[in-house]
């Protein structure tokens, strides 16, 4: 475990906590894409199948459980909570899941490191995570006006991805046989998707004005 990896995991954790906190305290999920949250729940459910087969460390197991429980709780809140679900803007959040899920699954069947169920699910989760933020970014573009917590949520997710890239560079130079093209390319694609959002986030931060995306 290196410092970039730990910092990456912590910003990832913070992003989830910010979102849960927003939903739990304000009792609102305005500006949050349910589609993205459902895709993340699917990402974790398919990636962490190794919870049943491999033990890596207590840290690893705990973090996996936290991400699984939190992602499914967020989906539950938006879909079923008596008050929260009323703030969900269904008409704006129109991205279709299968546009992302299907190509990712087919790609995982073709491009993977090993043709086994566990490995294909793991690869699928990497591809899906790379694009799972798209419904959220589309929703942000549509509503344009973003509250602070939603902005911070997306910012923290982007920070997590950037730190993971530094982690890979560090591991490449310090660990033998650490070459993982599938992980790197899907991770890079994922990080690049945030580039546009980051640009406007920093602009608004620098000028000390509320974050607003151009139409």
């Amino acid at each position: 475990m290196n410092i970039f990896r730990l910092a990456g995991d912590m910003t990832h954790l913070a992003s989830v906590l910010v979102l849960l906190l927003k939903i739990h305290t304000i009792k609102s999920c305005a500006g949050i894409s349910l589609k993205t949250q459902e895709l993340y729940a699917l990402v974790f459910a398919t990636r962490y199948l190794d919870l049943f087969t491999d033990y890596i460390s207590l840290y690893n197991t705990l973090m996996k459980l936290i991400f699984l429980v939190s992602s499914f709780s967020i989906v539950w809140y938006i879909r079923h909570h008596k008050i929260v679900r009323r703030s969900y803007d269904k008409d704006q959040d129109t991205f279709r899941h299968y546009f992302l899920v299907l190509p990712c699954f087919l790609l995982a069947l073709v491009i993977n490191e090993k043709f086994t169920v566990k490995e294909i699910m793991w690869t699928f989760s990497l591809y899906l995570e790379a694009v799972a933020i798209l419904p959220q970014l589309v929703l942000l573009q549509r509503t344009r006006n973003i509250d602070n917590l939603t902005g911070q949520y997306v910012f923290l997710l982007g920070a997590y991805r950037s730190l993971y890239i530094l982690n890979w560079i560090y591991r490449y130079f310090t660990e033998p046989h650490y070459v993982h093209w599938i992980t790197w390319i899907s991770g890079l694609v994922q990080t690049l998707l945030y580039a546009d959002f980051f640009y406007y986030y920093f602009q608004s931060w620098k000028n000390n004005v509320k974050l607003e995306l151009p139409a």
Partner: peptide
Amino acid sequence: TQKGSSHDEL
């Protein structure tokens, strides 16, 4: 998961 594998990542 042996050293050098990215499967220990979250």
